[in-house]
Computed example of a mutant assay.
Amino acid sequence: MSEPKQRIVATNGIRLNIAEHGDGPPVLLCHGFPESWYSWRHQLRALAAAGFRAIAPDMRGYGKSDRPEAVDQYTLFHLVGDMVGLLDALEVPSAVIVGHDWGAVVAWHAALLRPDRFHAVIGLSVPFRPRANARPTSLMPRTADSQFYQLYFQQPGVAEAELERDPRATVRSMLYAVSGDASGGGISMVPHGKSLLQAVEAPSNLPRWLSESDVDFYAGEFQRAGFAGGLNWYRNIDRNWELMAPFAGARIKVPALYMAGDRDLVVAFPGMDQLLANLRNFVPQIRDTLMLPGCGHWTQQERPDEVNAAMIEFLRGLPGRG
Rank of each mutant, 00 (worst) to 15 (best):
F77E: 07
D262T: 09
Y74V: 02
E242K: 08
A159P: 01
M174S: 08
M189E: 14
R239W: 01
D273C: 03
S36M: 06
I252T: 13
D181H: 15
M272Q: 13
W209Y: 15
R114K: 14
T137F: 09
C30P: 01
L279N: 07
V171N: 06
A49V: 03
L292A: 05
F247Q: 10
T289R: 13
P319G: 03
A219E: 10
V121C: 10
I252N: 05
M272N: 09
G22R: 00
P304R: 11
D216Y: 08
S213M: 11
S195V: 15
F148H: 06
A260D: 01
V9T: 00
G193Y: 13
T137N: 07
G294F: 05
R67C: 07
P115Y: 11
P4D: 01
A89K: 08
H119R: 15
G249E: 04
L139V: 11
L76C: 08
L28T: 02
A202K: 13
P191G: 12
V126E: 06
D181W: 14
I97W: 00
H192R: 15
H297T: 07
V266C: 14
P25F: 00
E91D: 12
S204H: 14
V9S: 05
H297N: 08
D288S: 12
G103P: 13
F33G: 04
Y176C: 12
E3P: 00
A245F: 02
F227I: 08
H42D: 06
A177F: 11
L276C: 09
Y149C: 08
L163I: 13
R235I: 05
K253P: 00
